[in-house]
Amino acid sequence: MEAIKTKIEVTEKERLPVVSEREAVFEARDLAVYYGDQRAIDGVNLDIYQRLITAIIGPSGCGKSTFLRTLNRMNDLVPAARLTGQLRYRGIDLYGPGVDAVEVRRRVGMVFQKPNPFHSSIYDNVAYGLRILGMKKDLDERVEKALRAAALWDEVKDRLKDSALGLSGGQQQRLCIARAIAVEPEVVLFDEPASALDPISTSAIEDLMHELKRDYTLVIVTHNMQQAARVADMTAFFGLDVSPDGNRQGVLVEYDETEKIFTNPSDKRTEGYVTGRFG
């Protein structure tokens, strides 16, 4: 029966590379961050892999934003913040001697919770970093490329000289993403990028992140578990831990492929959190 002999190839689902083949961009080793005497996170061991979306979820105060801000040294701006343990970026100790926070931030961009465009034109918002960092060659092309990558070009190409503040919240956030990727960072950090947006804009940002994954390593902090479930390849769950001295600190409870975290987490606390049963 010839009809049976012809085989149809099963379209294999896009699989994540197995752990040994993933390339780690960040490696946190026994990382702890303090604000003054207060320990915000403790004992974090976590590898963040190249060209994947890594989500960090957890209850309020678990230090997920703190962790994110150590990745581009934004925490340096908090005067009393200090750090123990090690955080390596492509093998280099990010907090080692001679490492310049400004240079770190050029390579590790960030998108914030509330859209924060500058009070200038759409064009100037994207061109800002390019001009200051001396990437002035082909400025128009670079701006267009960034706006296209942020899926905003078609909406703004006829009004590049208009104020960025005239855009909708979702458009402003995509503009901020364009601004961040215009300077060609290697990693983009997202600090609850959609929490101030309506569902349609949120969905647009999530689609955009999925597109950006091809070229960038993305890390997203979100208090919206479903968002992590939807966009992330890897998910880290941070929980709150009370140490014997009474200090409440964030600890990494579980880190695994997102599918595993949301269908079969290993840790009871993760299960409690993702099912919404956890205090």
């Binding site: 581009n72 934004m74 701006l77 400004v102 240079e103 770190v104 931030r105 050029r106 390579r107 961009g109 960030m110 914030f112 509330k114 924060n116 465009p117 500058f118 009070h119 800002y128 970093g129 200051i132 960092l133 901020c176 601004r179 961040a180 300077v183 960072p185």
Partner: peptide, 21 residues
């Protein structure tokens, strides 16, 4: 708003340039 400063700093722009620009 500090978000304006952060936006600039996060692009790898120095403190002083951020203030001026």
């Amino acid at each position: 708003p500090s978000s304006q400063r952060e936006a600039s700093l996060a692009l790898g722009v120095s403190r002083w340039r951020t203030t001026v620009q």
